[in-house]
């Protein structure tokens, strides 16, 4: 399952070969650490085309079975949500872990993404969280029950959204139960 260890530059080169145009921008960030023995490690930050998301993830899985750091998203209140996926390749190699951060814009008119739980069953937790916090639908996700929010959470309310679907109006009532807020008490 594990692939041969590559450097950040080689990983980027392989992804560019396989994906070509869909990488809109890329950057290799180097961080130097240590006090007496200075050494550095690298991270890859990429902006990609949203339609190529699934293909990009599949290419990453071809290189090495990754560790999923996080999935998150940013809503600035506009028409799109910026999705951010953090993967780590080659964990277990001293100084060798290469984190890859994928970013892409998802239009609010069509908040649908393919699931990655078929490649990594452990990603279910992350996808369920994003689903309830941002309202992004994952195609192929089997368990769609709420993760952190209560089962009677109102429909169409997403805590991380900064538009009319956000929870600004609910925040002042956190001491009340969902039912009390609904009844207008």
């Amino acid at each position: 399952m594990r692939g041969e260890q590559l450097t950040a530059e080689q990983v980027l080169e392989k992804l560019q070969e396989a994906l070509g145009e869909v990488i809109i921008s890329h950057e290799i960030r180097e961080y130097t650490m240590g006090v007496r023995k200075k050494k550095s490690y690298k991270e890859i930050w990429m902006e990609i085309d949203k339609d190529a998301f699934r293909k990009t993830v599949e290419e990453i899985f071809k290189l090495d079975y990754p560790h999923l750091h996080f999935i998150t998203g940013e809503d600035k209140g506009g028409d799109t949500i910026k999705m951010i996926y953090g993967f780590a390749l080659y964990h277990g190699f001293p100084w060798g872990q290469v984190s890859i951060v994928l970013k892409f814009d998802l239009p609010k008119s069509n908040l649908v993404l393919p699931t990655i739980t078929d490649l990594m069953p452990g990603a279910e937790t992350n996808e369920r969280e994003i689903r309830e916090m941002l309202g992004v639908e994952f195609e192929g996700l089997k368990n769609k029950r709420h993760l952190f929010l209560p089962d009677d959470w109102p429909e169409g309310k997403y805590p991380w959204r900064r538009d009319e679907y956000g929870v600004e109006d609910m925040v002042k009532h956190t001491h009340k139960s969902v039912n009390e807020i609904r009844r207008g008490e």
């Binding site: 240590g34 200075k38 050494k39 964990h91």
Partner: peptide, 16 residues
């Protein structure tokens, strides 16, 4: 699995 952030992406004194 040999995974440990202090080894994979060291920081501070762990890097030394």
């Amino acid at each position: 699995l040999r995974m440990d952030i202090r080894q994979d992406n060291p920081y501070d004194a762990y890097a030394d």
